[in-house]
């Protein structure tokens, strides 16, 4: 069974919810978890829940990086921070993959410091999953978007590498034999988007093992046209936040409408089951987290607001990625180029 190192001090609800999530995993699965962080705080939280001690190791880390801290400074000034120690444990082979819900920038920097890039990879990508429409029965309800923040601007080569990594991840995790890869752009034609995107388009059309379906425009993001959407970090991050913002606004709008009039309340009541389905589809806690790809090891970044369920699912995703050999799959695809 894989061993997953979990940053117990990372996230808005750490360490309580992180410890709860790990404890639940120890009851439900055979996965071994290493909780990294303040030993006393971790144990005091464990004491309050049901857990299996034989599947939980606690590794003391005396420092923690806050969600609002500037990543570069924090990583430099806090070498014994829980997120750094978590990554170090994986790098040293004491765990198979890492999970954190903490500061994203610090997590990416910690990986860059302690993990080696896969041969041929120049930059890592932070991926994220989001719900979208499906085009055919059995299609995964989630699409993979990368990069969403590990980079700002990218070269065509890097976009091609993101496509390879995302494609391998989707093949192993979503079990899509030939995931459709799209390039996020401002038009569907191959000459749109400027030099870098045109070059990326040209190269992606000839990469073996990548099922490239062309450019994807903004309105197509939530349709099922592509399973993997490739973009530079700046745009990816804007898109991700926009999608999250729309989901939050819709739910707030529904709430205020219900407060305004009994007719709206009645209408919402009629639509309740449909809205519940929509809510469950957009519920990030069910997806666990998304990987930082490009290194010889994996780190799953869970949402900063993650509670126990989301942390548990992130641990499951990490274990699945290890078991299903995501990194060897990426390495293999890169070798074939």
């Amino acid at each position: 069974m894989p061993t997953i190192a979990v940053d117990a001090m990372g996230g808005d609800h750490a360490p309580e919810e992180v410890v709860k999530g790990a404890a639940a995993i120890s009851l439900e699965t055979q996965i071994e978890v290493v909780l990294v962080g303040d030993e006393k705080q971790i144990q005091s939280n464990l004491d309050r829940v049901q857990y299996r001690p034989e599947r939980i190791e606690v590794y003391h880390a005396e420092q923690a990086i806050g969600m609002a801290e500037e990543p570069h400074d924090a990583v430099r000034n806090k070498p014994r921070a829980s997120v750094i120690t978590t990554v170090e444990l994986v790098a040293r082979g004491q765990a198979d993959a890492a999970v954190t819900a903490g500061n994203t920038g610090a997590a990416v920097l910690a990986c860059a410091r302690h993990f080696r890039f896969l041969p041929g990879i120049r930059r890592a990508a932070l991926a994220s999953v989001y719900p979208r429409q499906t085009e055919y029965p059995g299609q995964d309800q989630l699409a993979l978007l990368l990069d969403v923040g590990a980079t700002i601007r990218c070269e065509a080569t890097e976009l091609v590498q993101f496509a390879i990594m995302g494609s391998a991840y989707a093949r192993r995790i979503s079990k899509v034999p030939s995931p459709r890869v799209g390039l996020l752009n401002m038009g569907s034609e191959d000459n749109k988007g400027g030099e870098i995107l045109v070059e990326a388009y040209r190269r992606l059309s000839h990469v073996p093992g990548v099922n490239f379906v062309g450019n994807i425009e903004g309105h197509e993001l939530i349709r099922g046209k592509a399973d993997v959407i490739v973009t530079e970090g700046f745009t990816g991050n804007v898109v991700l936040k926009l999608l999250e913002g729309i989901a939050d606004s819709l739910s707030e709008l529904a709430g205020s409408a219900a407060r305004e009039s009994w007719r709206y309340r009645l209408g919402l009541r009629v639509l309740e089951s449909g809205l519940d389905r929509l809510r469950s589809l957009t519920d990030y806690t069910a997806y666990g987290g998304a990987p930082i790809l490009g290194f010889e090891h994996l780190l799953i970044k869970a949402h900063g607001r993650s509670e126990a369920r989301a942390i548990g699912n992130a641990i499951k995703v990490a274990a699945k990625a290890v078991r299903d050999g995501v990194v060897p799959e990426i390495r293999q695809t890169l070798k074939g180029l």
């Binding site: 071994e32 030993e39 144990q43 004491d47 001690p53 034989e54 599947r55 939980i56 190791e57 606690v58």
Partner: peptide, 17 residues
């Protein structure tokens, strides 16, 4: 059906408590 690592974790747990 515990592994040696499981046992080490168990020992650490009773000590932490």
């Amino acid at each position: 059906q515990l592994s040696a690592r499981n046992l080490a974790n168990s020992l650490a747990d009773i000590c932490r408590r």
